[in-house]
Design a protein around this nucleic acid. Structure first.
Length: 216
DNA sequence: TGCCAGGGATTAG
DNA sequence: CTAATCCATGGC
């Protein structure tokens, strides 16, 4: 009786069509450098992106988007710079750990080359401040791995179209990872898909459960 | 005023 | 394994 819910490829097409009709487009995660992207991934944890942008601007004006400079900066300066993003004491530690990792390992050519997806993920999860979502985001946007981001928006979307979605990030990933294999999306498509899902999930956006197609 | 925002770490069961 | 709690600020 219950129909099979749409796969990720169909959902991607629906979101694309909807966004195109709204005239919204462009790159999802704009960042001048890889480390800026990493910093954004940390700062955005449980934080509105609007406030992350303020924190990133304050970091930029203090040269703290250069990991070496960040590591040489006093805690108080870093904490003050990222204050608009909240959780500043915790996030300053996370940024420092990320900077250290990026300088010592992550940015080195060949760092990820001999690691498969699971091995790279395990490594990233050892870094303080890198939880499952942050690790997956960095794998997708920095290391070009074909990851789907199972964040709250994605889980709500999948639940709304009929999937039985476990409540936590990792449980959802385990239960529904077959969808990613089925869809066979490219890294570029997955990167765009995450952006479309987050964008569509924000308050004020229309749900995607009803696709913008003639006589559904 | 209350509630949540593109989570993660820690602790308790 | 899941659930609760803390982290701390800005915006509606």
């Amino acid at each position: 009786m219950l129909e099979t819910p749409p796969g990720l490829r169909v959902l991607h097409e629906r979101l694309r069509a909807r966004v195109a009709s709204l005239g919204v487009g462009g790159v999802w995660w704009p960042a001048d450098t890889d480390f800026e992207m990493i910093a954004g991934a940390i700062l955005t944890q449980n934080t509105a992106w609007r406030n992350v942008e303020k924190a990133l601007a304050r970091m930029r004006s203090r040269s703290l988007l250069e990991p070496g400079a960040l590591l040489a900066t006093a805690d108080a300066v870093l904490i003050d710079a990222i204050r608009p993003a909240g959780f500043h004491t915790a996030k300053s530690r996370y940024l420092r750990a990320a900077a250290r990792w990026w300088v010592e390992e992550g940015s080195c050519p060949g760092y990820a080359q001999k690691l498969d997806d699971a091995q790279l993920r395990t490594r990233l999860l050892r870094i303080p401040g890198f939880g499952p979502e942050t690790a997956d985001v960095i794998m997708l946007y920095i290391f070009d791995r074909p990851m789907f981001i199972w964040d709250a928006y994605a889980r709500r979307l999948l639940a709304s179209v009929g999937y039985d979605v476990p409540g936590s990030y990792e449980a959802a990933r385990r239960a529904l990872s077959y969808l990613v294999d089925e869809a066979g999306l490219t890294v570029a498509e997955l990167a765009e898909l995450h952006g479309l899902i987050v964008d569509s999930g924000k308050a004020g956006s229309r749900p995607v459960t009803v696709p913008p197609r003639p006589h559904s």
